[in-house]
Design a binder for these strands. Sequence first.
RNA 1: GGGCGCGUAGCUCAGUUGGUUAGAGCAUCUGUCUUACAAACAGAGGGUCAGAGGUUCGAGUCCUCUCGCGCCCACCA
Length: 806
Amino acid sequence: MKEISKHYDPSETEPKWLKFWEKNNVYKFNPKKDGEIFSIDTPPPTVSGKMHIGHAYSYTHEDFIARYQKMRGKNVLFPFGTDDNGLPTERLVEKLKKVRASRMKRQDFIDLCNITLKEITPDFIEDWKKIGMSCDFSKIYSTIDDNCRRISQKFFIDLYRKQKVYRQEAPVVWCPHCQTAIAQAELEDKEAETFFNDIVFKLPNKKNLTISTTRPELLSSCVAVFVHPDDKRYKNIVGKKAQVPIFGNRVEIMADKKVDMKKGSGAVMCCTFGDKTDVEWFKEYKLPLAVSLDKAGMMTEKAKKFAGLLAKDARTRIIEDLKRKKLLLEQKKITHSLNIHERCKTEVEILNSEQWYVKILDQKKKIIELGEEIKWHPEFMRTRFENWIRGLNWDWCISRQRFFGIPFPVWYCAKCGAVLLADEKDLPIDPLSAKPKEECKKCGGSKFIPERDVMDTWATSSISPELALQLFYKDSEVKKMIPMNLRPQAHDIISTWLFYTVVRSQYHFENIPWSEVMISGHVLDSQGRKMSKSLGNTIAPQSIFEKFGADALRFWAAGRTLGQNINFSEEEIQAGKKFLTKLWNATRFVMMNLPKSYDYRKLDTKKIYPTDKWILAELQALIETATKSFEKYDYSSAKMAIEKFFWLKLTDNYIEIVKNRLYEEIPKNKKGRESAQFTLYSVLFALLRLLAPFVPFATEEIYQTFFKSAKDAKSIHLCGWPEVDERLFDKEKIKNGKILIEIVAAMRKHKAERGLSMKTELEKVEISCDNATKKIIKEMESDLKAVGNIKILKFANSKKFSVKIA
RNA sequence: GGGCGCGUAGCUCAGUUGGUUAGAGCAUCUGUCUUACAAACAGAGGGUCAGAGGUUCGAGUCCUCUCGCGCCCACCA
């Protein structure tokens, strides 16, 4: 055999096998191929420049499963796509190109987005290949491409026809920075310091009514004052009017149980809109609308002399004004939490505006039930899903007053306002450039106003099963592929992507979108903190590929139970690399001791030595454990079992024990050598296949270098999952191996304690044991004597097992 | 305030339905050039399983409470 390096070098092998897999279509999906289909609704990553370590962590998890299923003989549909429309993409382009969408012509900005995506997407996807994803990369969808626009619009029309989507003017969560409506799921909390201001409202009897507020700038929006119905202090003023300071208008004092008597003065102003309670009161008591903030977060004419100011500045000016007029009694510094927009961290407002909504509030119970039909891994993630649904307060607002997104295929009749939908045959369309082909069905009008809004990015990604399936199936074939087998994703988007997909699937197909979901955790830094750019504790996966290789990274990612967060640790990744070196060297050893073009299938299995039967039994147990674990999506248990077998059983013990049989040149023990050769070869080959889902590059390199002969599968990943050989099935032998290892350990300890070399000859070893144990040891006597270099092996009859060494 | 997860060796984590003396890797210490691997190998030390109570012949594991950490949600006047 030619000289082969003692070290395994991922930087050399990984790019080589990437090319090989692509060239040989190893992961290409053929819908017509035989075998049960296993379909995966791969998360389309949001195009963001570079893959981050969290991606690397959760995408490898799903790849473990995809590769396992493939080796089990399933026809695995593992598609790939990118999510690249909506606000996230707009923000990325604004950052990369240093532009502001709001200051550009609409079409220019859209063009720039498309150009930018073309520039950055290929590099972005490259990292997903580098990490060893076994997706079919030959067909990729992008959520902004023509086909996705078509499907997204088609499904919108479906929602409209099924009356699951409606347009309404109502208070909605609004981001003044992005100048668009957003959904509840896009909110984050932020702790902030502010002042709780005690402000004087005048009562008709000239007495003062103190109102506490953090938002004095909304005074001009005040439409009522509320007190608690049981509050004795205010009993006789309910129904009377209070005068709003500075602005002078009078508003009714009303009683409602939502008021907290203990908070502030126990009297609260209701503005349209300061918070969610204001919205509830507005609706319940049919209060008038008083808008003092515009879509950009600036004061309106309603705020009179404060008009045109930013809310923040208006607050300062109003406070000054109140102070001068002696209408500000006290300012208390408090910390409260407020809602910010997750994309830009701006404090959100509630604004009245016309938006498209998908009905979800009337479906809460149904969606929770659907969640129960899906199998969750881990199970507790379902609770998060249910909690989120129970807490929902708004229907899902899907319209965005933005630019780079999928347009609504809708016009409005200029005369009567009726909605006119585009014809499905014409999709995808942009209502801004296309014109309807018919007249208004309601009034016969022929003038139309196009919808300028675009859809929220989740409105498209929530039909990802269909986007993925359409890469390989016709429109008419999609329905029969639902539910798909698996949705893999991380836990942070249970309330968005996962939830919305269940909703959409129910509306379009009256079915769950997938039968199982697997939810990954996050990567934290070595101290368990969230990784963030501001903390400077992020790790680029690209630097890990370079330093340790993708396999080492994958090995690390397999080390934590599914659903749990993991602390980043370079030492752990180092350990993965060490494992590969060991695997490489163990293989080298085996191959050095095999004849050329060895065919393990030829050996008569009746001639297997007892010691060899032990390791084969261990292998059988391992295959069973690994299979069971993978079926439960518990890849970390599988990995751990494989690792322990390899290191503790195979290399530390079995190989050491049979070495001498292999070294023997004289054919007096030809059978012993052949049995060891057969065992080593078949154990290692099985082990390699068990490891292939975790470390696809290294196992491919080893397979191609040492195992593959002309008639074998062209890749380890096409070799199939190892199976237990019925002829060798004997689990009882595991117990025999335990006895053997115990004796070996005793001899090693004896030598180590005396500082002796492991080669040192032992004059006499005496084993005390019962007759049954003696029989077992006797069977393996020659191996035992050889590994310990024992001159005389003696037995003593005793119920208690012990080893005496002289 | 509610929900979920976590708390096991110095560190990172396993520990299946309760069942001998609680495991692994990293780190530490001692030794070994041993014809796969010295980035290796052999051995050793190291734990009141967060705390308290309970169920049980038996609890890291089941129940109750308390404490600590993390995440999600609510509160936002």
